[in-house]
Design a protein around this nucleic acid. Structure first.
Lengths: 212, 212
DNA sequence: AGCTCATCTTGACAATGCTTAGATCGAACC
DNA sequence: GGTTCGATCTAAGCATTGTCAAGATGAGCT
């Protein structure tokens, strides 16, 4: 499977790298027509190949979606890393990670949808499906550790706090996707302030457990 | 539109109450084959009518799903109310509400899926779609008010805390739907303990905001 | 050159959402 | 009571989708 394609090279094989082309085509379809329009045939059409061609690169429609999902989690991971200063105060880091998470979901709603829809459909191959988000998750975990309020030897407590934070961010991302919260946003002066307001509660995870 | 159907009466009209029958059929299909198998045709088949019959009771497939969603939110509301003692300590009430929410999602994963999928698809009619969950949401809100730690005149703060809690529960419900958390559950001694562990962080919302 | 095999196309099948045209039958009106 | 009306249901069909089997194509090795 050699791919001699400098810029738009001499099409070495039948196509060169159809798998890559299909993923790009899928991305374009998603961006243009949304997740409900993501069909194998539409992707093939967009890539300029026959409807059956994708089956030589993806066993299933769900395998295509899984591949999209993996790239999406990579992008999410990058964005979260860029958005949080690793040397800054841990509290701000956790909040920044959460905000980045939700902003990514808002900026790429279709990709975000695919990321989680395929996790759901692919109960058969959980390892492959869930490995994709490990990078992003570990970023959050590190920040939570640096927060230091959770006793680090109590691994269970730490994990629970991380899961709670991740769930809250995920839940907010979903809600923001289809609810408006307009009046609340207006009262707080913008969407970013609103997101930060909700997510500020995330930073309190673990802290309040030290209550009397 | 009279429905003279005492027990399984003389079929007064063409069917009697096909709308009701379709919703029941949909419920059966969901329970038996999952949300991906929920098609208008399958529901019609299950109800014993022609594939086009449902269109006289639901404009769309999404309108069928919306109707299912509404009933689902009613059930959820009932379950949450039953699970939380209105006279108990507010802190436990919030936790109980959260646990009930997630347990409902676990017990009826297909219905839960429809509830949120149709919210997403029906951006056109947000009022009708979102009104369904108002009952359940207000239950949480009351408990959060009774918690009292959020200054009640600061309506915005209260709303933010409620949204954060709701998002966390929703996020956990989604995660639990397709992730296992097996090792963690084992360490904590059961699923319920695990859920309570994650959700205990919800009760800390607002509290930690009073930090120095 | 000739063989091989991955790649891609053609053509097909079943299922789905949805529409249009027609059949059916309760009910209201004369 | 008979007729008309209109809501309800069926029949038939269209476009689209996921998927598969059979054949064409052509790159790369011997």
């Amino acid at each position: 499977m050699k791919l001699t394609c400098p810029i738009t090279g001499p099409k070495p094989y039948h196509h060169g790298d159809l798998r890559r082309a299909l993923l790009d085509a899928a991305s374009r379809v998603l961006e243009r027509e949304g997740p409900t329009a993501l069909s194998l045939r539409a992707v093939a059409r967009e890539a300029g190949v026959s409807p059956a061609a994708p089956y030589h690169h993806f066993k299933d429609k769900s395998e295509l979606m899984l591949a999209i999902s993996e790239e999406g989690f990579d992008q999410l991971y990058d964005f979260m890393r860029q958005s949080s200063d690793p040397d800054g105060p841990p509290m701000e880091r956790v909040a920044a990670i959460g905000v980045a998470y939700v902003e990514f979901a808002k900026a790429h709603p279709s990709i975000y949808r695919v990321m989680y829809d395929c996790s759901r459909d692919l109960e058969a191959l959980p390892d492959k499906a869930h490995k994709a988000e490990d990078g992003a998750y570990s970023l959050l975990k590190k920040a939570m550790i640096d927060l230091g309020v959770v006793s680090s030897d109590q691994e269970v407590d730490l994990e629970l706090a991380c899961i709670a934070a991740w769930c809250a961010a995920h839940g907010l991302a979903e809600m923001v996707g289809f609810r408006q919260f307009d009046s609340l946003k207006a009262k707080m002066g913008g969407e970013k302030a609103f997101l930060a307001g909700v997510l500020s509660h995330l930073g309190t995870f673990g802290q309040a457990r030290n209550r009397g």
